[in-house]
């Protein structure tokens, strides 16, 4: 499954990142790489973006970004 399908309050492990170039670089810089634990903390009022906890920091990702991150619960 992909990160956009992760339910609120649930955590999972990143298995693969499909984004490319600057977008991929950005995710890696934020500490999102295969093996990283990631938790859905809460959605924004409109449901997109969603706040995720990554290495004890909270990061907001848009749905289109989350869709390119494969996870395993």
């Amino acid at each position: 499954m992909t990160l956009d399908q992760l339910k609120i309050g649930r955590a999972a492990t990143v298995t693969k990142i499909f984004s490319t170039n600057a977008e991929r670089r950005r995710l890696l810089d934020l500490g999102i790489l295969p093996g990283t634990r990631i938790e859905n903390v809460m959605p924004s009022p409109l449901g997109d973006p969603v706040a995720y906890r990554i290495r004890s920091a909270v990061v907001a990702l848009r749905r289109e970004q989350a869709r390119l991150i494969e996870i395993e619960e």
């Binding site: 810089d29 934020l30 500490g31 990554i54 290495r55 004890s56 920091a57």
Partner: peptide, 9 residues
């Protein structure tokens, strides 16, 4: 210091 792992990058 509270988010050291992420900062070490």
């Amino acid at each position: 210091a509270t988010r050291l792992e992420r900062n070490l990058h």
